[in-house]
Design a protein around this nucleic acid. Sequence first.
DNA 1: AATTAAAATATGCATATTCATATTATGTCG
DNA 2: CGACATAATATGAATATGCATATTTTAATT
Lengths: 233, 233
Amino acid sequence: MTNQKSVSFQDIREEVIDRIQTRIWPQGSLLPTELELAAEFGCARATVNRALRELAEQGIVTRKRKGGTRVVTTPVKHAKLPIAVVRQTIEDMNAGYRYALVSRTLIDCPAWLQAKLGIPEGAQVLHLQCMHHADNRPFQFEERWINVNAVPHVMDEGFLTVGPNEWLLAEVPFSNAEIAFSAVPATGHLQEFLSVPTGTPLFQLERTTWFRNDPVTFVRMTFHQGYQMRTTY
Amino acid sequence: MTNQKSVSFQDIREEVIDRIQTRIWPQGSLLPTELELAAEFGCARATVNRALRELAEQGIVTRKRKGGTRVVTTPVKHAKLPIAVVRQTIEDMNAGYRYALVSRTLIDCPAWLQAKLGIPEGAQVLHLQCMHHADNRPFQFEERWINVNAVPHVMDEGFLTVGPNEWLLAEVPFSNAEIAFSAVPATGHLQEFLSVPTGTPLFQLERTTWFRNDPVTFVRMTFHQGYQMRTTY
DNA sequence: AATTAAAATATGCATATTCATATTATGTCG
DNA sequence: CGACATAATATGAATATGCATATTTTAATT
């Protein structure tokens, strides 16, 4: 009795990558059809389909109905950046997390933010400034504006013990967002709270968040000197 | 004759997201089983499976055999950053691309790089410095070290007209890499080639690349002042 | 030769079925 | 009551099959 082990979609995925890397299927070339590959590997077409579909999602091949599957010529790889709550980022480093509220003010929405969020004139936003510490050393300065019309109970929350990031995550689950990374000089509050000299280059993440097409919040997170955001791909 | 349209996995995915957002299934709660959902939506279990699997890949739910599917409490969303070749990034902005080689030297691998790449002592690396311009304005300064043992024909290439990034992409298809983003001050070559004052904060991307477990190259790409890397998620 | 219509085809997706596997729940025995 | 073996079960995955859909290829027509 031979213990015939079936071919998994992972096997096929690996084999396809291997054939691309070893130039059996050079860049720009057309792969065999799903049916041909299924016959070769001795599996169902659906199994080949899943393997190729995942490779297409990774941007390694492109697929077109009737056109077939092709190795892409100029790959655009997608780096997957896991964006967690600051608390978790810090705890994952085995460091102690500490949160502190700096300021909390209800203001008329400034023009630049009004344009960015696309909210009506005269709207009010809750402006927050907070600090996140790792082992009592400054880790991230957070400046945030929340559209009070989009988040009903936000004015009931003092944000004294829980950060707005975590609070919003629980209140507004699975929103969608737009992110921008950049390098900025330390000025004003930043240099104070992150305790660095004026002009020190700092890594900054800006994010605009929507919930069901309603703009919810804009946040500017500035990290301590020397912070690196890392990932593999 | 009623044209009975079948339920797609996208429909189910959307519906599940909706039920999470509307708190029908609050964070941390257990979803019905695939079988129950299939019965409710009037589709096959495989269709529900695909919908839930994709949501799990997005980090919206967690799944465990026998344990069932659960809405995650502290979502870690993954921002997908498309990392293309500089030329393409610039051309996508409808700007004119220009490449210039600054230096090209074969050197003994410095100790820090040896450690980073994990290559044997006394190995030689090709050190390259290049500039990428958009509409004749400095866009990116690229400093790169290539493991000559891992890339056979690299010494035959002068890199006078084609950048090392594009050359390597064609030569070493679909490698895997490790990326780090950070903010650095403009010093030395950087301030000269990007024409900014000393200490100007600059956005930097460092990447180490392997091909089939062999270290191939380490690159440090520093962008012009004010550059932002953007994405949605 | 150019245009248009029809046939062929590769991928995309849904279904029904089966087996595998991890984990939980249950029950037995000391 | 607790430890351990056993059964139950939800997801994971592969197969065979059928239909849908976007394109390309081919044929027909002007």
